[in-house]
Simulated scan of single mutants.
Amino acid sequence: MSHINTSSPKIDNIICLNSSDLDSLRLGMSEIVDLLDQMFRQRANEWMVNPPKIFEHRSDTRLYSSMVSFAPSIGYASCKWQSGDADNPARGLPLIQGLLLLTEDQTGQPVAMMDSKWITGERTAAASALLAREQARKGASTLSILGCGLQARKHLEAMTTTLTTLERCVVYDIIPERAKAFKAEKQDNTALEIVVASSAKSCVTEGDIVVSGAPIVEHPKPVIEPAWVKPGCLGISIDYDASWCPQTVAAMDLVLTDDRGQLRDEQRKGHFEGVDQIHADLSELLVSNRARRSDDSQRILGYNLGIALEDLAVAAELYQRAVAGRIGTRVKF
């Protein structure tokens, strides 16, 4: 017989948190890396629900996605609705836009609505940094980034926060002005030397860690070839199958992902050609040491697809800080 707690109070107000509110909560990148580390370790041993995201293209450049999850140990459930449009930056709009709804797990009452762009930006970079902390070769000194939008900025922050051996950051964007703007903005705010590459190839070939952040499109035209990837390189795809050629994936010594189910779901839709084997997911790597780097010459590729449990772990912490600090706008519900 189930036991129902009848003493739970009714929640009359939802807290709305915009990007400025979330900034004011001062949840640092290193803290987010730790939150994700804890969540992935818990996921290996606890019941957490994380179905593959609903991810559909309206056109070749526009996508819509919905991501839901809940975890009793975290105490909350969440649903994130987002759009992405590769043409938006030219319109002066964010590439990613959306909202996250957070619900407490005891009675299922909604408690907060948040800017999902903020959460997506932070947790994506933190998940990449977590993978790099575990799988980058010893002494990795050069970070290469393809695409110079929000994620390039967040990944520079996350990687320099997490890895102490980095000395250079090489960047490339198909729009040269974006790469130049990135260097102008970030050079005085980082200890790393920032170099603008003349081509995607020259950017990738230098990288001990290569982060690909091209727009996710329905019909990708990947460019990273096997010969571009040097021994010991850790590749991190945050753009699904937009950048890494199938033959390059096949040439990797190890291939990992944050979530097997989500990758297989995309394969059923015709994506991720060339991914014949996933050696480990991030939980298996952290808890069981499965597919951990065994020597500094191995070439490793990680698909950081972004999962709802990452959103949930970060959103729950943000909500608790907002309640404690009385941050955000209360809306009667």
Rank of each mutant, 00 (worst) to 15 (best):
56 E>V: 13
40 F>C: 07
50 N>F: 04
28 G>W: 12
111 V>N: 14
52 P>M: 09
75 G>S: 02
65 S>V: 00
105 D>Q: 11
75 G>E: 03
62 R>A: 10
81 W>E: 15
38 Q>I: 07
111 V>I: 13
61 T>F: 09
52 P>Y: 12
70 F>G: 11
102 L>R: 01
27 L>F: 11
44 A>Q: 11
92 G>E: 02
46 E>Y: 04
68 V>A: 13
34 D>E: 15
58 R>N: 06
28 G>A: 13
93 L>T: 00
30 S>C: 13
55 F>N: 10
33 V>W: 00
89 P>W: 00
61 T>C: 07
44 A>Y: 08
111 V>R: 14
102 L>V: 02
104 E>T: 05
81 W>G: 08
59 S>Q: 08
112 A>F: 09
86 A>V: 01
88 N>K: 01
77 A>V: 06
111 V>D: 14
72 P>M: 06
95 L>G: 11
57 H>Q: 05
57 H>P: 01
105 D>G: 13
56 E>Q: 12
67 M>N: 00
111 V>Y: 11
77 A>F: 06
48 M>T: 13
31 E>P: 03
90 A>S: 11
50 N>G: 03
90 A>M: 07
38 Q>C: 09
44 A>I: 03
92 G>Y: 01
64 Y>E: 15
84 G>C: 03
88 N>C: 02
47 W>Q: 15
30 S>Y: 09
34 D>H: 13
111 V>E: 14
56 E>L: 12
66 S>Q: 10
39 M>N: 07
105 D>T: 05
